[in-house]
Amino acid sequence: MTTATTGTRTEVTTAATTEVTTRTGTAAVSGEDRTAGSRVEVRAGGGWAAVCGLSDLVPGRGVAALLPDGRQIAVFRDRAGRTYAVGNRDPFTGARVLSRGLLGSAGGRAFVASPLLKQRFDLATGRCLDDEAVSVPVYAVRTR
C-alpha cells in the first residue's frame, strides 16, 4: 500500500497514542490543511493504513473509515489532539455507527457514547463502561 510519507514518523505502541504538536486548535478545516497537514494512519493487517488527514477530524467527534480488508473503523480526535481508533460496529445494536457518537472524558480517559442507545466505550481499551462483558476492538493510530 502507498501512503504519503512527508514529515517525521512517530512510532506508536498503544491505542491511545500520538502526541500531536501541530494544529491542535479549533476545528477550522480548509482545503490547504487537508493537502498539507499530517495524515492519520491506523495499524491493520501488519501495516499502516492511511485513513484521513488530521484536519479531517473535528476535535470531539469521529469519522468512519474503511480498512483495506473491508472492516469499518471509527477514528476520533480529542481536544488535546490525541487520536483514537475503534471498531465502528456498536455491539449492542450491530449498526456501524460508533463514529457518529459523541466523544467525552471521565477521570482523564476518553470515551465515545454510542449514538443509538448511549452506552459508553473507553477509547483506549475498547471496554464498555456500562457493561463489562462487552467491548469493541481498538486499533493503534499514528499521525505523520
Binding site: 476545528a27 473535528v58 467527534r61 445494536t93 449498526a95 455507527v97 457518529r100 457518537g101 449514538p115 443509538l116
Partner: peptide
C-alpha cells in the same frame, strides 16, 4: 459541530440500522 448529537450533526434522525 462537535457538540451536537448525531441527529443534529447530520440534520436527520438516526434509525436502528444506521
Amino acid at each position: 459541530a462537535a457538540l451536537q448529537d448525531t441527529n443534529d450533526h447530520h440534520l436527520a434522525n438516526l434509525q436502528r440500522n444506521g
